[in-house]
């Protein structure tokens, strides 16, 4: 098993905004090794989300290649990408992570249900994870009955319960106060250190950057600083 989980080579992505080309990424080379906790930093509009989406197989580059766990995403069909997201990735979005009509427990079980995990195992894994994340008493509540911090923790539980190769979190703290942000970051750090989950977050929150081991700065679609390459 290779040590490299993500390899982006010469990735560019240009959007058409009302026929005006907007360059979101230009020639990004980027490697993430297994077990890393990386934060993509940079001002709003610098291309963080775009890069994260390309790595997550939610979007395709205009040129360059994206590899995840040895698989080149460029070659995959839409439904293959869909399956890859289901089986290899965990996503935590800025908001709207949970299905409103399902309880926290059911939301955490949901991806496993899509994967076809047996009911007993699902229940067992979801309950124990919610317990670990301090949400045991909230398991029966629907997202609308949870606080923002509880929702994001449930989203993290949903994302990691399937043991993904990669956890991608886009502005996970954007809607949280600093206390809850800290709790969430402690959780991510624990997952990274104890279970070796590879994490990439996109954020402009200095607190998030502080918790990650490696910080990659983007500006105008280019990597301008990478403190691991500096260390290397």
């Amino acid at each position: 098993m290779s040590d490299v989980v993500v390899r982006c080579s010469g990735v560019t992505r240009t959007y058409q905004d009302n026929a005006v080309p907007v360059v979101a990424l230009q020639g990004v080379d980027f490697v993430v090794k297994r077990g890393e906790f990386v934060s993509l930093a940079g001002p709003s509009g610098s291309g963080k989300t775009t890069l994260l989406n390309l790595i997550g197989g939610l979007d395709r580059p205009d040129s360059g290649t994206v590899e995840v766990d040895g698989v080149t995403l460029n070659d995959l069909s839409e439904s293959e990408l869909s399956d890859l997201r289901l089986h290899q990735m965990g996503f935590v979005f800025q908001s709207y992570n949970l299905i409103p009509v399902l309880s926290a427990q059911e939301n955490v079980e949901f991806i496993m249900q899509l994967q076809g995990v047996a009911a007993d195992e699902r229940r067992e894994r979801a309950s124990s994870l919610l317990k670990d994340l301090g949400l045991a008493s909230m398991a029966g509540r629907r997202p609308g009955e949870l606080s923002g911090g509880q929702q994001q923790r449930a989203a993290v539980a949903r994302a990691i319960v399937t043991n993904p190769v990669l956890l991608l979190a886009d502005e996970p703290s954007a809607n949280l106060d600093s206390g809850t942000t800290q709790e969430l970051l402690e959780l991510l750090r624990t997952l990274n250190e104890r279970q070796g989950v590879t994490i990439i977050t996109a954020t402009h929150d200095p607190m998030v950057m502080g918790y990650s081991k490696r910080q990659v700065n983007l500006r105008d679609g280019e990597i301008v600083e990478d403190n691991s390459s500096r260390a290397a």
Binding site: L58, S79, S82, D83, L84, R85, M89, I99, I111, L114
Partner: peptide, 16 residues
């Protein structure tokens, strides 16, 4: 829209 988008993002197939 957001719910369906999120469901697709996490790997729900179009058929579903």
């Amino acid at each position: 829209v957001q719910e369906f988008g999120m469901l697709r993002a996490v790997g729900m197939r179009p058929g579903a």
